[in-house]
């Protein structure tokens, strides 16, 4: 399953980078993530609950941030295991400065699914993945706004 998209933010890419590298922010904006434990530099253990239509499951796994080219790009490698199936995800993130102090985050990657989630409803999953991605960015936007208002 391919995940691909682009989102614009009202802050320059350097600041966006800082937000994205903040573990607490990440934990806060990602839907379903209940816990993010550090296992070392840029390496985390994740606990999340995800609901896919009628199926709800707890995923545990690891997430690693690699190939960091501050402030322009990085890669996320994730392995998520659950009773209903496993996901192996590799996503390349590219940050780009736009006019008027804005920036864009472009992502492109692949999620290999296995188990029940692979053979039941996979055809609708890219829709679900896109919805989750949208939620993440919306939450990040809100967080940035909140943060700036407080400041």
């Amino acid at each position: 399953m391919r995940v691909k998209g682009k989102h614009e933010f009202n802050i320059p890419k350097q600041r966006l980078w800082e937000y994205l590298m903040d573990v607490e922010v990440l934990a806060k904006i990602t839907p379903g993530i209940s816990k993010l434990e550090s296992l070392g530099e840029d390496h985390f253990k994740t606990h999340s609950q995800i609901k896919l239509g009628p199926v709800k499951s707890t995923f545990t796994g690891e997430m690693q941030v690699t190939n960091k080219q501050e402030p322009s790009s990085f890669q996320i490698n994730m392995e998520q295991l659950s009773k209903i199936g496993n996901a192996h995800v590799v996503v390349q993130m590219n940050l780009e400065d736009l006019e008027e102090g804005k920036s864009a985050l472009e992502f492109d990657g692949k999620a290999n699914l296995s188990g029940v989630i692979a053979r039941t409803g996979q055809r609708v999953l890219s829709g679900v993945a896109n919805a989750i991605t949208k939620d993440v960015f919306k939450a990040l936007e809100e967080h940035i706004e909140e943060d700036n208002t407080l400041a």
Partner: peptide, 8 residues
């Protein structure tokens, strides 16, 4: 990857 994606 060899997953049967319509197995239900």
């Amino acid at each position: 990857t060899g997953q049967l994606i319509n197995g239900s």
